[in-house]
C-alpha cells in the first residue's frame, strides 16, 4: 500500500525495515525529522536510539556500534557531515560498514538550510584524511530512496565499506507516495567473522585503522584499494532517460535529475532532443557508460545545485571528446525548470 510520506521518514522507516536497530544522531535542519522519527520508532522495534552530544561523538558511537557487526546508521546535514569526517576516515580505515544519510544544505560554513548539492566533492573524493572511498548513492525520488536503503546496508556489509545516501533538503522535506520495502528478518543477519563481541571460545579480534609500520599499513591500504576496485567494477548504477535519440545529454543527479526529467519533456516539445544521464552511484561514478554515450551527442550539459563539482567527473568520463557545459546554482537556490530549459536552449543554438 502506498503511503504519503516525507523523505526523511521514508528513509528512516526503510532503514529499520532493512534491519537497522542502532541509530545515533544529532539534530540539524533540514533532516531533524529523521532523527525524531528514529527517536519514536526505535523503541517500538526494540532498537537503540541515542541523541549524541555532537556529530563528532555520533560518528564515533557509530564506529563502536559498527565494531559489533550490526547494522548501524546516522543522518545529518552538511555542517554535521563535515564534523563527522574524522570518524569517517577512521571507520574507512577500520573497514567498518555503516550507512550515513547526508541531507545537503547550502554552504560553505553555517550557510543556510535550503537544498544544495555542494557536498559532492566531500562525499565522493573523501572529506577526511587518507586514501579511502565510500560508496555514495543518490536517489532522486522518495520511492527510490526507500528502496535503496536495504541495498545500502547490503553493500556496506558485502564490502566492509561506508555507504552514504546523498540527498538534499528537497528530497528530505518533500512528500510523495511510497511503497515501503519488505521487512528484513534480522534473525537471519549473520554475525560477521570480524565482529567484536567478546572473545568467547575464539581468539581475540582487533579492529583498527592503525599500524605504525609503513609496510604493514601499505598492505592494509592495498587491501582497501582492491576492495574499491571490485566495487568500481561491479556496483556502478545509473539511469538513462530518453537518451537514444538525444542531441544533448544532461547529466544530473538527485533532485536536479528529476527537475531535468521535466525539462527534457518541455525541450522536446520545442524540438530540442534532450536526454538525461543520471548517476545513481556517485562513487563509483559511471565513467565508462558516460564515456560511451557521450560520443554520439553534440553536447553534454552538467546541471548541479552547486557551482560545478560533479562536472569534474563528467569531464573525466567524456575526456575531451564532446563539449561539456555547465549550469548550476548553489547556496540553497534551486534552479527552476525554466532556467534549466534556457540553459539548454543556449547550447542548442
Amino acid at each position: 500500500m502506498k503511503m504519503l510520506m516525507k523523505g526523511t521518514e521514508a528513509i528512516a522507516e526503510a532503514a529499520i525495515r532493512a534491519g537497522c536497530r542502532l541509530y545515533f544522531g544529532y539534530p540539524i535542519t533540514p533532516q531533524s525529522e529523521l532523527t525524531e522519527y528514529m527517536a519514536k520508532r526505535m523503541p517500538e522495534v526494540k532498537g537503540v536510539f541515542l541523541q549524541s552530544e555532537s556529530e563528532v561523538a555520533t560518528v564515533n558511537m557509530l564506529y563502536g556500534a559498527a565494531c559489533t557487526g550490526k547494522r548501524v546508521m546516522t543522518s545529518t546535514s552538511s555542517p554535521g557531515f563535515s564534523l563527522m569526517q574524522e570518524g569517517i576516515s577512521y571507520m574507512a580505515g577500520a573497514e567498518l560498514p555503516a550507512v550515513f544519510i547526508n541531507v545537503m544544505r547550502g554552504g560553505p560554513g553555517l550557510g543556510d538550510i535550503q537544498p544544495s548539492q555542494s557536498d559532492y566533492f566531500q562525499s565522493t573524493k573523501g572529506g577526511g584524511h587518507g586514501d579511502y572511498r565510500m560508496i555514495v548513492l543518490a536517489p532522486h525520488t522518495l520511492q527510490e530512496a526507500a528502496n535503496i536503503m536495504g541495498e545500502a546496508f547490503d553493500l556496506a556489509f558485502k564490502y566492509r565499506m561506508l555507504v552514504t545516501i546523498l540527498v538534499d533538503g528537497m528530497i528530505g522535506q518533500m512528500m510523495e507516495p511510497v511503497e515501503l520495502p519488505e521487512w528484513k528478518n534480522i534473525e537471519e543477519l549473520k554475525e560477521p567473522d570480524w565482529a567484536l563481541t567478546g572473545a568467547k571460545g575464539r581468539k581475540p579480534r582487533k579492529v583498527t585503522s592503525f599500524d605504525l609500520d609503513p609496510y604493514e599499513l601499505e598492505k592494509m591500504n592495498l587491501r582497501y584499494q582492491a576492495t574499491y576496485k571490485r566495487v568500481a567494477e561491479n556496483e556502478v548504477r545509473y539511469e538513462e532517460f530518453k537518451i537514444e535519440d538525444a542531441d544533448i545529454i544532461v547529466v544530473a543527479y538527485g533532485t536536479m535529475a528529476r527537475i531535468v526529467k521535466t525539462v527534457a519533456d518541455s525541450a522536446r516539445k520545442e524540438g530540442i532532443r534532450v536526454g538525461l544521464f543520471r548517476p545513481i552511484t556517485l562513487w563509483p561514478f559511471p565513467y565508462e557508460r558516460l564515456s560511451k554515450i557521450s560520443q554520439n551527442v553534440k553536447h553534454i550539459l552538467t546541471v548541479e545545485m552547486s557551482y560545478g563539482q560533479m562536472i569534474e567527473d563528467v569531464k573525466l568520463a567524456v575526456n575531451g571528446k564532446t563539449n561539456v557545459d555547465f549550469y548550476g546554482r548553489s547556496a540553497g537556490v534551486v534552479p527552476t525548470p525554466m532556467e534549466v530549459l534556457e540553459a539548454i536552449k543556449k547550447i542548442a543554438r
Binding site: 545515533f24 563502536g64 556500534a65 565494531c67 559489533t68 577512521y90 567484536l196 563481541t197 585503522s209
Partner: peptide
C-alpha cells in the same frame, strides 16, 4: 577484543559498543 578510537573519542566508541 579491542579497537583504537580517534583521539579523545574513546567514550563515544565505547558508548556505541555498549548500546549495541
Amino acid at each position: 577484543d579491542g579497537t583504537v578510537a580517534a583521539h579523545g573519542r574513546a567514550p563515544a566508541v565505547a558508548t556505541g559498543m555498549k548500546r549495541a
